[in-house]
Write a protein that binds this DNA or RNA. Structure first.
Length: 234
DNA sequence: CAGCCGATAAGCT
DNA sequence: GCTTATCGGCTGA
């Protein structure tokens, strides 16, 4: 079973999810990386098969070198055992547990030595209804195979649950390595317009416009009343 | 649909 | 000892 996942992540069929993303894409400030990460594909080559989603909502968290600082970021007070991945090279997974029950996944940004990351807040499941992959993601969430897509992956901890992402298995993994079971890929999906709002669920720096999403996508998390401005990218 | 609330434990001071 | 980048169930409109 694990062999199947090994074969699938490097062998034929993997190109279905597009090409591995380049490291340089992430060696930049998170507020620039975050909007451009929308539309990209997160894949987990799990023991039960490939589980994937298209990124539709993210938030940027800035490293302590920033002026002004970002007190909402885990890296705000410098390196600790928990957040050390954020101070390492770009393109790695920072997975942490929250409220004792859930996980959230970030992608490290900036070059080695500097912190900064993008929190993945929502995905669109890359598997249609009535597929085995969709049923597997629903099952991971404790839902019936016919559940709505947004019930699977709208929310940072929901998407970790759906894809089977955990701190023990995935924290620190290189997301840009063909041998990793967790990867970021780009398949040519084009994003032209991005919704910009304040971040969700934080107590500090609540007014910074660092949440980015595909406008009116039905898999977004958070209150629908949260409005913001729109920007054009590329 | 919006708003409130409790669960539950790691991480840091 | 206190905080917390969440979720799901409940209430009331």
């Amino acid at each position: 079973m694990e062999e199947d996942a090994q074969i699938e992540r490097t062998g034929r069929g993997v190109e279905h999810f597009g090409a591995l993303m380049p490291r340089a894409f992430f060696e930049a400030p998170p507020e620039l990386v975050a909007p451009r990460l929308l539309g990209k594909v997160l894949v987990h080559f799990s023991p039960i098969g490939a589980l994937a989603g298209r990124i539709v909502e993210v938030e940027a968290y800035l490293g302590p070198h920033n002026k002004p600082p970002d007190p909402a970021a885990h890296s705000h007070r410098g390196p600790t055992p928990r957040n050390q991945v954020l101070f390492g090279p770009a393109g790695h997974a920072y997975v942490y547990s929250i409220y004792g029950r859930y996980f959230c996944m970030n992608v490290s940004c900036e070059k080695d030595g500097q912190a900064g990351c993008v929190l993945v807040r929502a995905l669109e499941p890359l598997a249609g209804p009535n597929t085995a992959s969709f049923a597997a993601m629903a099952g991971n969430r404790g839902l019936a195979p016919g559940a709505a897509a947004r019930e699977l992956t709208a929310g940072p901890s929901r998407l970790c649950q759906a894809l089977g992402i955990t701190r023990a298995a995935h924290n620190g993994l290189d997301l840009l390595d063909a041998g990793s079971c967790l990867q970021l890929r780009e398949d040519g999906y084009l994003v032209s317009e991005v919704l910009v709002t304040t971040r969700i669920g934080i107590k500090h720096a609540v007014d910074l416009p660092l949440r980015f999403a595909l406008p009116e996508h039905n898999c977004l998390s958070g209150p629908r009343s949260l409005t913001g401005s729109r920007i054009l990218i590329r």
